[in-house]
Design a protein around this nucleic acid. Structure first.
Length: 325
DNA sequence: TCGCGTTAAGATGATCGGCG
DNA sequence: CGCCGATCATCTTAACGCGA
């Protein structure tokens, strides 16, 4: 049971940490057993989250953790935002937290300013899903360490709940976790840490619901994971105007690096919040050149390829001067 | 197996507040 | 005003795990 395992982690960590890091059985227990148990709790959820637990790499971490990543946002604890259990081995407490990748922010802003950035974003995140945040606490957390990363976790904490090791049941843990994962999903759907001015601007003039759908759609399209999968399944040629970077520009790199966009063509319109099937590769996608991609977002139905094709005029000239095959 | 990711600790650099 | 030491942030290093 995850509650027992997390309690054990909190209670035994200080003792285990005194032993060598290499080949630590306790380390294996955290990385493997705890992660597997956590993964099992997700069986009936349809958004496929990546689960990972860590006690450090090469060196013992001050604050071990168990995290849930949405692949659209991040797959590592260093960037993006995610749900995580953070362990304070001193006080033997476990904090379920909506938190953020610290390292990426530190790299961008340095530690001091980075912490301010993390704090600000943490508040923004809580404000974006107020109906979930109110079930948890927005009070600052204490992880009992002065090291740089834990300080970042403390700053990046948006909302959550702290348990004392051995003093909570699995039922409570699971109920809270599911609530937190629903909050995570909602946050992803509503733009995450993207400031709302930016979202408004990108979606130029659409209402808030449309803006959110548009931002989610962009996130899907820009996700490195999705892009890779789509370009594996489809040829690197613009499906609308036929632009072929290889033929037209002599582009010779791998398909993944082709200067074409992946367009998420399944309308998210009918997709209400809480509905979890977000995309299907490759059916929901088109490969488009940047210009056609922009254009298809300007017509009424961003999934209507034939309409867009009818709008292309330069293609005729193209076919005269550079006949395809 | 190899390069990249993750971590803490040690080294270096920047800033600040006396104090002569 | 310039020097000294303290303090804090940042950079670098070393160690290892992990996925391709």
């Amino acid at each position: 049971m995850l509650a027992e395992q997390l309690s054990r982690l909190a209670m035994e960590y200080t003792y285990e940490r005194a032993k060598p890091f290499t080949n630590s059985k306790f380390g294996d227990f955290v990385r493997r057993d705890i992660a597997v148990e956590a993964k099992n709790l997700l069986t009936f959820r349809s958004v496929d989250l990546k689960v990972r637990a860590s006690v450090g790499q090469g060196v013992w971490a001050s604050v071990p953790w168990l995290a849930f990543f949405d692949p659209l946002i991040t797959e590592t604890a260093t960037k993006g935002f995610y749900v995580v259990y953070l362990i304070n081995p001193d006080e033997q407490t476990i904090t379920l937290s909506m938190n953020q990748g610290t390292t990426a922010i530190y790299n961008d802003f340095g530690q001091t300013r980075g912490r301010d950035v993390l704090k600000r974003r943490a508040r923004d995140m809580a404000d974006r899903v107020p109906e979930f945040a109110k079930h948890f606490s927005e009070a600052p957390i204490n992880l009992g360490s002065i090291a740089g990363l834990p300080a970042g976790y403390e700053a990046g904490h948006s909302f959550g709940k702290t348990y004392t090791a051995g003093m909570f049941t699995d039922d409570i843990l699971q109920a809270d976790l599911h609530q937190m994962l629903r909050a995570y999903e909602a946050l992803v759907n509503r733009g995450g840490t993207t400031p709302s001015e930016v979202m408004q601007e990108e979606a130029n003039g659409r209402d808030i619901d449309e803006t959110r759908r548009y931002v989610l759609s962009c996130r899907i399209e820009r996700s490195a994971k999705v892009r890779k999968e789509v370009l594996k399944a489809k040829p690197p040629i613009c499906e609308c105007c036929g632009l072929d970077p290889k033929r037209d520009y002599g582009f010779n790199g791998p398909a993944y690096e082709t200067p074409l966009d992946v367009h998420h063509a399944a309308p998210l319109h009918g997709l209400s919040e809480g509905e979890t099937r977000r995309y299907k590769v490759p059916d929901d996608f088109m490969v488009l050149c940047p210009t056609c991609h922009r254009m298809i977002h300007k017509i009424d139905s961003p999934s209507d390829l034939s309409k867009l094709k009818h709008m292309v005029r330069f293609q005729i000239a193209r076919e005269v001067f550079y006949p395809i095959r």
